[in-house]
Nucleic acid binder design. Structure first.
Length: 973
DNA sequence: CGGGAACGTGC
DNA sequence: CGCACGTTCCC
């Protein structure tokens, strides 16, 4: 037995608790009960809850537990200025179980109250009424076509966390509208049209695949209590016919209570539809069977809202006005079956075209029975030209958070270039994809690469040597046989050292090569040269393996060199037509006949004795014969150029001469590393320096990523090498914003992970105009550097970052990153202006929860706080700035491009790409003839933002491609 | 609030 | 018994 407040009788009465109910949501009433069900809720709190809920509907003083209404937090006006019915919790009246064998309907008493709280007289419900769509009270024109109609004007959000009853403490965010932003928030909303009398709009929770209630509870938080569905809102001519359901939450019914809850809901509904007549035993039995079937395979992670409209007749009877409408599905954000899919990290961003490489994906919660890893390639138009799925077994899904899989083979196993593809997760059950798709690079087979290299080598050969016969290269080994065997010559290693001492290692070799003394030295006669070569190449072999191997390997190199030097000497005396070709062929032939495909240049540079004289001579000879082309295409079996070797071996002094000779600094080896990557990897600061100080004919590209998906700067940061990072950044600040393709982190993200204040300051202080872009960039897991810091870094790092970030709610345009070290003006003079308040930065950091928007006063370097910025028209431009920043994010930009390059799919020309349509909608049609793809449009928006109507563009984007819009929306407000 | 760990339960 | 997944707890 318990007490509740009987609204009808105006006093507390006792009622029976249904002892047979074990449900956590037991409402305590049986169908036969004559008491009114107010609120199903979890026992053991059920009774208190019901009592309190009853009290909610009353003015003060009637219940012992009821707080005085004057103190109620819900004292808003029920109508806002727009005439939209802004019903808050006070007006959201629970009516669960209305009419369950009940004669008195009372809980709607306060539905008619206007701007004050009062209780209307209880209404008596007549015994029975017809259940059907009410046709009276139609609009006065009487047009039969204008039947009352419910329409959803704001869908609920697609994903929402369902919480268990035990989690429903405190506030946990409400079920917002699909278009909800931080401001303004929206909520599920319906309108009733073609009706002009008072009506009730009801919202309840339904299953998605059946027109039947869901066992979960749609609750409204009210005075510390959760009030369950259905929820009724009153609409009328005066209020408008808009019902907005705010502050709702979804309680995940525990499995053991599913049947019970479902049964109760179905029963309540049936009884309501039956005009509150009691159910027969047979009906109850049927209901139970039906419930059993439904409960068995009800989707617990997906619900939808059901909206219904009723007219309450004078006699209190509820008559449906319009057919019910259902919202889109609401998915449980926490479930692996319906939550968001995301690849957080790849073990490596590259793999061979043959496939079957092991790849590990770290992912957000997935279900091993319901997940696929899809590889796909898109052409420039965003069309999928290839797709394949990674191989893995259920047991390869590790604890729902990682997938170990084998890469699929690429469609063309004989490609001779790298192919950029994407990886995404797919959940077959609902075809949900992970977003964004992560880039992955297929590497051609080595055989193909070296075949190609050979081709380019020999083609360079034949093109420069004109009609040179192929026999020539076969002849060459014989030519080599003419060279003197190097054995037995005196060890001249001191000689080499003398040279280096003489000229000094610090002197740049370019200068060295120009110096008269050195030139003389180099231009000695061939006998001397032979010695030099022997010194270089013969020694090595002896040192390593003894004399037995002298005849092969490196020894061969000295023969080639000797021969080339002889030709060089001869040619200088009497230039010959064939010399150039001969040297070229010797060079190529040497590379082809050597196991590692190292060229002479490779060997000379990497020689462990670092024979300066030999190396310079070789370079000079190559310069002399103008073999630049050859040098550039001359890569060894690892794809290393001479520059790679120089960097690897810390031979910084060769870098400038090689660059001068035209050796490309941007050449990537088979692991994707440029020479600079190697220099950074090996932490050869001198090499890095030489590179950056060099005067390459080709612009150094610091954004190139190796097979780990990293740029040299990424590597430097990962190795926590401040000096290296500093040099790289000072050379090219823009490289800071490059995201790595391993986990989408940019330099700042990575510095955060290193927890290196030094590096952070370096990056933040780089005076980079894209700093906002970097700060707002999200990695593959969706985190900005600050968010990442909050997750992974220490407090110091977090604080440091918080200081440079725009405050919550502050729009990007008003904000210019402060220098980290800059002292903030902490003067605390109170502002007399009520709307403005100057505060200290330390205080600001704490105030992130505040709703007020904050902006930086640029002229003074101080921040101003404004209570309400919505009237500030100057800020109209801000989202545009933000949009432009977002477009500078590689991930977002690429995703937008690929989405917008897809065909529109409707309209007069469904094949027309979306971006064209979007351009026209944004009044940029004049450019559609110039731009070749979405990138044209996006670049325009990014570069020439000022001429773009932001609101128009975004609205159009939303219409053209909601997915693309969502991408921006995530960050836009 | 949202994220995540701990704990429980059933296969 | 161990694992996967459901539920609760906690910051």
């Amino acid at each position: 037995m318990n007490q509740y407040y009987d609204l009808d009788k105006g006093k507390n009465v006792l009622f029976m608790n249904d002892a047979s109910s074990t449900s956590g949501y037991s409402s305590g009433n049986s169908p036969n009960s004559t008491t009114q069900s107010l609120s199903p809720a979890h026992s053991p709190e059920t009774m208190a809850l019901q009592t309190d809920f009853a009290n909610l509907n009353l003015p003060g003083g009637n219940s012992p537990h009821q707080p005085p209404m004057a103190n109620s937090p819900y004292q808003h006006q029920l109508l806002n200025n727009d005439g939209i019915c802004q019903l808050d919790a006070t007006n959201l009246i629970n009516s669960a179980g209305v009419g369950v064998g009940v004669a008195n309907v009372t809980s709607f008493g306060n539905m008619y109250m206007d701007h004050q709280y009062f209780v209307s007289a209880p209404t008596t419900v007549p015994p029975a009424q017809h259940f059907g769509y009410h046709q009276n009270g139609l609009a006065s024109d009487g047009d039969i076509k204008h039947v009352p109609q419910l329409r959803i004007v704001e869908q609920p959000v697609e994903k929402f966390r369902f919480r268990y009853k035990s989690e429903m403490h405190g506030t946990h965010g409400s079920l917002n509208g699909a278009n909800s932003k931080r401001t303004p928030k929206t909520f599920p909303e319906v309108t009733l049209s073609n009706y002009d009398g008072p009506a009730v709009i009801r919202c309840s929770l339904f299953q998605t695949n059946l027109d039947s209630p869901h066992s979960h509870q749609l609750v409204v938080r009210k005075d510390e209590r959760d009030v369950c569905d259905p929820h009724d809102l009153h609409v009328s001519k005066e209020r408008g016919y808009v019902a907005q359901f705010i502050n709702m939450g979804i309680i995940h019914t525990a499995k053991k209570y599913i049947f019970e809850e479902l049964c109760k809901k179905k029963q309540d509904r049936l009884v309501f539809q039956m005009n509150r007549r009691e159910l027969s035993t047979k009906q109850i039995q049927e209901l139970h069977q039906e419930t059993e079937r439904e409960a068995k395979d009800m989707n617990l992670n997906q619900v939808r809202l059901c909206f219904e409209a009723f007219k309450i007749e004078d006699n209190g009877a509820w008559v449906p006005l319009a057919p019910p409408v259902y919202s889109n599905a609401i998915n449980n954000r926490k479930s692996a079956q319906t939550g968001e899919l995301r690849i957080v990290r790849l073990s490596k961003p590259t793999g061979g075209v043959m496939g079957n490489d092991e790849l590990i994906l770290l992912v957000e919660k997935v279900s091993k029975k319901n997940i696929k890893v899809r590889f796909f390639e898109e052409d420039e138009d965003g069309e999928t030209v290839w797709e394949a799925y990674a191989k893995f077994r259920e047991s390869d899904v590790h604890h729902q958070y990682a997938i170990v899989c084998q890469t699929p083979a690429y469609k063309d196993k004989d490609v001779d270039r790298e192919v950029n593809v994407y990886i995404e997760l797919i959940r077959p059950s609902d075809d949900e994809r992970s977003f964004p798709a992560l880039p992955f690079r297929y590497k051609p087979r080595n055989v193909i690469v070296s075949r190609k290299r050979r081709r380019t080598c020999s083609s360079a050969n034949s093109s420069s040597s004109g009609t040179g016969s192929s026999n020539n290269s076969l002849d060459l080994p014989r030519t080599l046989g003419l060279a003197q065997p190097p054995n037995g010559l005196p060890n001249l290693s001191q000689h080499g050292q003398t040279i280096s001492q003489e000229f000094g290692r610090d002197m740049h070799l370019n200068d060295l090569m120009d110096s008269e003394n050195f030139r003389k030295l180099i231009e000695q006669n061939s006998t001397d040269l032979e010695k030099i070569c022997d010194l270089g190449m013969g020694e090595l072999v002896k040192d390593g393996h003894g004399r037995a191997e002298v005849a092969s390997g490196r020894n061969l190199t000295s023969k080639y060199l000797n021969t080339i030097f002889k030709i060089f000497d001869q040619d200088r005396r009497t230039p010959t037509e064939s010399s150039h070709r001969q040297v070229e062929e010797l060079f190529t032939d040497h590379a082809l006949n050597n196991e590692n495909n190292d060229t002479l240049l490779h060997e000379v540079i990497s020689h462990k004795k670092d024979n300066l004289k030999l190396a310079i001579k070789t370079i000079q000879v190559m310069n002399y014969f103008n073999l630049k082309e050859l040098v550039n295409s001359a890569l060894n079996a690892d794809g290393d150029s001479a520059l790679h070797v120089a960097c690897q071996q810390d031979r910084a002094h060769y870098i400038r001469p090689l660059l001068g000779m035209g050796c490309s600094p941007n050449q990537q080896n088979h692991a994707g590393n440029t020479p600079l990557h190697l220099a950074v990897k090996e932490e050869h600061l001198n090499c890095v320096e030489s590179f950056l100080n060099g005067v390459p004919t080709v612009q150094l590209d610091l954004s190139l990523k190796n097979d780990d998906g990293l740029t040299p700067l990424h590597m430097a940061i990962r190795q926590n090498k401040y000096d290296v990072a500093k040099k790289l950044i000072s050379h090219d600040r823009s490289s800071i914003s490059v995201a790595n393709t391993m986990d989408g982190n940019n330099a700042l993200h990575m510095a955060v992970l290193e927890q290196s204040v030094e590096l952070l300051v370096l990056i933040l202080d780089a005076q980079n105009q894209n700093l906002t872009d970097i700060l707002l960039a999200r990695n593959a897991a969706g985190y900005t550097p600050l968010e990442l810091a909050r997750h992974k870094a220490n407090e110091r790092v977090v604080k440091l970052l918080e200081n440079v970030y725009p405050e919550k709610g502050e729009l990007a345009m008003t904000w210019i990153p402060r220098k980290v070290k800059e002292e903030i003006d902490t003067s605390s003079d109170e502002s007399s202006d009520a709307g403005q308040l100057e505060i200290k930065s330390e205080e600001m950091d704490i105030k992130t929860e505040d709703e007020e928007s904050v902006e930086l006063d640029l002229s003074s370097g101080r921040r101003r706080m404004e209570v309400d910025s919505s009237k500030d028209t100057e800020k109209e431009q801000d989202p545009l700035i933000k949009l432009r920043l977002l477009l500078s994010n590689e991930f977002i930009y690429d995703q937008l491009c690929s989405l917008l390059n897809k065909p529109l799919g409707y309209g007069s020309d469904p094949q027309e790409p979306k971006w064209k349509h979007l351009a026209r909608q944004s009044h940029l049609q004049q450019f559609t003839f110039i731009w070749l793809g979405a990138d044209g449009l996006l670049d325009h928006v990014r570069e020439k933002g000022a001429s773009v109507e932001f609101a128009t563009f975004v609205r159009a984007l939303q219409a053209v491609d909601p997915q693309a819009y969502a991408l921006l929306d995530r960050d836009l407000r």
